[in-house]
Nucleic acid binder design. Sequence first.
RNA 1: GCACGGUUGGCGCAGUGGUAGCGCACCUCACUGACACUGAGGGGGUCGUAGGUUCGAACCCUACACCGUGCACCA
Length: 885
Amino acid sequence: MSEELSKAYEPGLVEDKWYAWWQERGLFHADPASPKPGYSIVIPPPNVTGVLTLGHVLNNTIQDILARHARQTGHEVLWLPGTDHAGIATQTVVERRLRKEEKKTRHDLGREEFLKRVWEWKEKHGGIIIKQLKKLGCSCDWERERFTMDEAYALKVQEVFVDLHTKGLIYRGKRMVNWCPVSLTALSDEEVIPKPQKGYLYHFKVEIVERPGTFLEIATTRPETIMGDTAVAVNPKDPRYREFIGLSVRRPLPLDGQAILPIIGDEAVEFEFGTGVLKVTPAHDKADYEIGLRHNLPVIDIMNPDGTLNDLAGEDFAGLDRFEARVEAVDKLRELGILVKEEPHENHVGFSERADVPVEPRLSEQWFLKYPKTQEARAAVRDHLIQFFPDRWEKVYDHWLENIQDWCISRQLWWGHRIPVWYPANAECGVGNAEVISAAGGGTSHSEFPIPNSEFLVSVESPGEGWVQDPDVLDTWFSSWLWAHETMEAAALKKFYPTSALVTGPDIIFFWVARMIMAGLEYTGEVPFRSVYFTGIIRDKQGRKMSKSLGNSPDPLDLIAKVGADGLRFGLLRIAPQGQDIKFDEQQIVEGRNFCNKLWNACRFRLMHGAVDPAADPSKHDLSIFARDLLAKLDATIQRVNEGYEAFRFSDIAQALYDFVWGDFCDRFIESAKADFDSPRRDGTLAVMDFTIQRILKLLHPYTPFITEELWSGLGFGPQSLMESPWPDAGNAAPEPRAEAVYGAVSLARNLRATYNVPANKRVAWQFTPSEDWVNREIPALSLFLHAESLIACDKAPAGSAACPTDIGILYLPLEGLVDPSAERSRLQAEVGKVEAEIEKVARKLSSESFVKNAPPAVVAEHRQRQQDWVARLAELQSAIQTLG
RNA sequence: GCACGGUUGGCGCAGUGGUAGCGCACCUCACUGACACUGAGGGGGUCGUAGGUUCGAACCCUACACCGUGCACCA
C-alpha cells in the first residue's frame, strides 16, 4: 500500500489478495499438535450443489467471527468445512436435467450410469458454494474439507448401520410411512410439513344392509379413498349409533365392486367430529390403519406409488390422479343420490418438504431406527452440558425427544449411502404381508425390484456371489448426524472434540442437532459440542421468508460486489439480534459499507500526520482530557465486546464497535485532536490515536477481516497478520467527566447556532465566561468544535448576544443585526417551559409522602439532585432573559 | 388445541422496577485541513389492549388481540 490511501475504501481491490495471503501462510490450518488450547467448529454442511444464500452468509459469518476471535484469544482453531450430498435434492436436480436434455429417466440409464452422472454433476457444480464461502472470508481449514460421500465417511455410515442393527436398534418393518408421490420415496416424520388446506367435508349416506331404509351419514375429506374402505366405525359409547355395531353397510364405490362392510365400534372415533361415523381406510390413513389392526380388517391399497389410482379402485378411477379422483368420486356420489352436503372445511395436510405436494400415508416395507441415547441426550441439554443460545430452544428440543418416534431411515433413491443389507439373489419376492390386497401384485415397496421378505445379511462387505444388495439408500441425515466426530481423524478428535460451538438454524434442530447429540453420545461417549447458537431466519422487508420462487432473496455475491464482504458481514450482523428473525433491507448492508469507509478515512487521516508508531504507549505522555476520555471509552468498549462474546450477542458487539469508532473516535476524539497538531500535545495525541487504532483493528477483525488486515498492514502494524495478533486487554482507565462536559457544551452551543439559523459555514466570534480554570486550556479545541472565528473570554454578558449556559460556563453568541431580541426571548421562554415541566415532574414525585418513605434513599437523593439541577438551569435561563432586556 | 417468540417514533431494533434510547428514513443548514459511503442541527413515541401488583411499570402478574414459529392421527 502506498503512503496515501485512496479517498474511499475499495474492497474489490484488496479482498482476494488478503484471502490468498492468509491461505499461503497456512493461517486457517489447525494443528492437532499445537500446545495452545483447542477451539473447534464444524460447519453445518451445505448441499454440495447448492448456492450461497443470505442465511448461509449469516450463519457462516458468525462461525468465522467465532473462529477468528478464538485465534486472537490464543486458541488453536479448527473450523472444519464440507458439504453434504443432499440425497433427494441432488438426485431430483440431475433427473430433471436428464429429462430435459436427453428425454430419459434414471431407469433408462440404469443405476450405475445414473450415479456416474450425479458424480459428474457434483464435480462440475459442487465447488460453487465453497468458492462463495471463500469470497465471504471464511477462515475454514480447507485442507480438511469433507463430503458426506467421501469414501472413508461413507464407510463409517454403513458401519454405523451395521452396528445399530447388531444392537437391535435398526429393524425392517412394514408400517405406515409418509410417502412422497413425486420423489417416489418414503420420508421421515420431520420431512413432512403440515399445512392448513381449505377443502370440503363431504357428507354422504350409506344404507344399513340389515335395516333397509335406515342410513348412516359419513363425513370425509377424502372421498377418493372410499374404494379402499374396509369398515365403517362409530364410537361404542355413542348412543346415536351403538346399536348398529355388528351390522353392515354397502360401500358405494367402486360401482363395479360395491362391497359389504362391517360397522365396528372403536373408541378412536370422535363424537363431535363430522357425523360421528368414520369410514375406515387402512391402506391410506395412519389412524385407520391402527383401527384396522385392532379389528383385523383387510387392507386394500388402491393407489400406485405416484399417487394415481390403480385397478382396485375400479375402472372409473384407475389411472386418475388422486385429486382428479376426488372430483370424480364426489360426482359419482352425487349421481347415486347419496351425497348429502359439501361443507367448507379447513384441515392440516402433510406436505413433502422437498417436493411440496401432499404426502400419501402408505403401507410399506422400510428400515427404521429406534433412536439411541435419547434420555442421555435430553439430560445433556437439561443439565447444560450443552448450552443453547437462546435457551428457549431447550424446551422445543426436550419436547421432541420426549415424544420421539422411530426414524424411517430408508429412502427409495439411488444417490446416497446404500443400505448394507444383502438378500439371496434367488429369493422369492413375496408380498410380505398376506392380507394386503395390492394391484401391483408384488411387494408394497417401491423400487425396481421388490424387497424379498426372506432372510438377509447385514454387512458392509458383500457376502459374495449369489447375494444382491438392498436397493435403497439411507436418509441424508443418517449420514450427517455423524458429522461432528467422523470428520476428524484420531489426533484431531483428541484435540478438537467435543467441538466448542455449533452455529445453525432452529429449523434443523430435530433433523440435525438432536440427532448429532445422540450419535455423539453413542459413538464417542461425549456430547458433540458445548454450545449451540441458533440464528434467526432472514426475511424480506414484508417479513416473508426468502425463497427462490418469490424472487425475494438477493444473491450474496451481488451484495459483496456492491459493498464488499466486510460491509455485508458487518451490516448483516449489526441487525441480527440473538435468535430473532431478521428483516433484511439492502440499506442496512450499505450502512456496513459506510462504516468500513468511515474507518478507512479515520486511518487515512492518521497517515496524513506522519508515520504510525506500532509501539505507541499513551502512559508515557501527558494527555489531554479528550485523549483520557477516549481511553476510558476504549476500555469500556473492550469490556462490552468481551461480554458480547460470552453471551453470543453478536449484534451488541457490532453496535458497541460502531458506536465507539464512529462516535467516540471519529466525531469526538479526532475532532478534538485537530486542535493538538500545532501544540505540545501533539505527541501524546498521536500516541493515543495509534494505540487506539491498533486496538480498533483487532476488535473489528472478526467482523471485517479484509479491511482491517489491509489497514493493519498499510499503517505498519505488520509484518505479521492481524489474524495472529493477540486480543486486547480491557484496562480500567478512569472516565474523564471534563471531556464529557465540553462535548455537552459544544452540543448546546451548536443548537443555539441552529436556532438562529446561523449558516454552517458562517464563522462566529463567540464570547465565553468559563466556570472553572481548567476550561481555559481547552479553548482551542472548543473553538474548533464550534467552528468559531474567535472565542474570547468575557466577564459579563456582552450586549446583544444570546446566552448559552453550559456545564463549563456561559457561551455567548453575538447576534448584532442578525436577530431581534424578541426571537431570542421566545426561544428562551420555550426552554423555560420545558424545564418547568421537568421540575414539576420531579417535584410531584418528591412531594409524595409514600415515595419518600418507601423508595430507596439513593433514589430519593438522586431525585433531589435532579430537582436542584433543573432549578439551577431555570435560574440561568431567567437571568438570560433579563439580560436580553 | 398446546407451547414458544414478537408487538416501543415512518422502518429496523435496544432497553427485565426509578428522567423513553439507537440506527436509518424525514426536514433545515454546510463540500471548515479523513470521509457527501460526510458533517452539524431538528421534528416525531400516552412502549398492542384491558385489568392487577408496587411509592413508582416499557419492564413483574392475569386475561385478550394481532403477527411468526414449533408440536398435535379429529377423519
